[in-house]
Simulated assay, not measured.
Amino acid sequence: MEQRIGPSIPPLQGAAADPAFVPGITGPRPAEPDAAKPREPEDAVSEETASDDPATKEEQEPSAEDAPDEGPEDAEEADEAEAAPAPDGGPVFEASDRRAKVVADHSGVRLRLDDQEAEFRWDEIGAVETESPRFGKRFTLTVHTPDRRWYPLEIEAKSRSDFKEWEADLDKVLDAYFEEAEEAEESAP
């Protein structure tokens, strides 16, 4: 008979064996199948086979009616278009540095770090927490959701005096919109 000496260690379950077990971590997207990709119609005329007659040229050149409407050309203009003012002219909190940006307004809270963005409506937010360090200039804003997840974002301030201004502006927004969302939840049957 064979016996083991030492503790009996059960096999590892969950994150140690399968990274997809950890909530919030998603795997890579599967590649798009060929059927989902747009295909050219079979009767389309290629550039090589097109002749120089005007009827063929008219078919190839898109007209002004067929051209899609172009939106703002600059990313900054698109950001300004997204951050539309509140319908009632309510308070808006906005803070940013070279990498991160946070906007809190009537629609909710938007966090952006480099090319990643997260948007939360007021009914999706459980709490908003801020932290100002004793030393340094990194202001931390954390959005907590009811399902026990949190999303922190650090913003580097130009000076430490910005912290008080940011906290006061954020308090105005939270008082105006976060309270309204809580009251709407309580009144709903």
Rank of each mutant, 00 (worst) to 15 (best):
D79I: 09
I9V: 15
L111W: 02
P38C: 03
Q116K: 13
R99W: 10
S51A: 14
L141H: 03
E124P: 00
A127G: 09
A17S: 14
R148V: 09
G108Y: 03
W166R: 08
S8T: 14
I9W: 09
E80T: 04
K172V: 04
G136P: 06
E82R: 14
A31E: 09
I125A: 00
D114T: 05
Y151M: 00
A84R: 08
P41V: 05
H106K: 06
P54R: 09
G6W: 07
R134H: 11
E129D: 13
A31R: 14
P38R: 05
T142L: 02
P68V: 06
D114A: 13
A95Y: 06
E119C: 08
D69W: 03
E186R: 15
R149A: 08
P33L: 10
D115P: 00
A67F: 08
G89W: 02
S187V: 13
R121Y: 07
K37D: 04
P68D: 02
P62N: 13
P30R: 11
S8W: 11
P133W: 01
S132Y: 04
P85W: 00
G6P: 04
R138A: 14
P41N: 10
E61G: 03
L153P: 06
A17W: 00
V102H: 02
A168I: 02
K37P: 01
F139W: 15
P87K: 03
R110H: 03
E80Q: 14
T142F: 01
K137V: 05
E40W: 13
P19K: 03
P33F: 12
F163Y: 08
S107C: 03
E58L: 12
W122E: 01
S132C: 06
H144D: 07
A35T: 13
E65I: 07
I125C: 02
I155W: 00
R121H: 12
A118D: 13
S159N: 11
V102G: 02
G27Q: 15
E183T: 06
P72W: 05
G126D: 11
D66M: 09
D18M: 00
E186I: 08
E154V: 03
